[in-house]
Simulated assay, not measured.
Amino acid sequence: MLKSISLATATLAISAACFVLLAAGQRVEAQSAGMYVNSVDLDILPAERDNFLAAIKENGAAAVTEPGCKRFDILNLASDPNHFLLYEVYENEAALKAHRETDHFKKFAAAASKMVAKRDARAMSVIASNAK
């Protein structure tokens, strides 16, 4: 009788562990799915830095109100005050395309066209997102 109770307890423990591991794996997949990143390096003309900052802050603040935009970070390279990185996270590529059709993006793009010396955009997909 003691042997059958031990076997039942072990079976239950293994089943619970498998359930927990499966659930954890599903959460990781859910966190990684549905994220499309647009990473843009920009070199700004020094005389246009303040104008660029005003324009990109306005565009970024409006972008995160869009249903498909999850994040819009504006980063400045510590060693170069005129080099910026935009880190934009969207649910999918269609959401990025929808962002580019908004009035606020078109306003930003028109203004920035005379401020940007160099632009390098890279589309990326998220493999894993590790954050608190």
Rank of each mutant, 00 (worst) to 15 (best):
M1S: 11
M1R: 02
S4P: 08
I5S: 07
L7S: 05
L7G: 04
T9D: 06
L12V: 15
A13F: 02
S15H: 02
C18M: 10
C18P: 01
F19Y: 04
L22Q: 12
R27T: 15
R27E: 12
Q31D: 06
S32G: 13
A33T: 09
A33N: 14
A33I: 02
Y36H: 03
V37I: 12
V37P: 09
V40I: 02
V40E: 08
D41P: 03
L42C: 06
I44Q: 01
I44D: 01
L45G: 13
L45H: 14
R49N: 13
N51M: 09
N51A: 14
F52S: 07
L53W: 11
A54G: 00
A54P: 00
A54I: 00
N59A: 01
A62S: 15
E66S: 11
E66M: 05
P67N: 10
R71N: 12
F72A: 12
I74F: 08
I74Q: 05
L75E: 00
L77Q: 05
P81C: 03
E88F: 14
V89E: 11
Y90T: 03
E91T: 01
E91M: 00
E91Y: 06
E91P: 00
N92I: 02
E93H: 14
A94I: 07
A94D: 05
A95G: 03
H99R: 00
R100W: 05
E101N: 12
T102N: 09
K106I: 01
F108I: 15
A109K: 05
A110V: 01
A112L: 07
S113R: 08
K114L: 07
K114W: 09
V116E: 05
A117Y: 11
D120L: 10
R122T: 14
A123L: 05
A123Y: 13
S125K: 14
S129W: 07
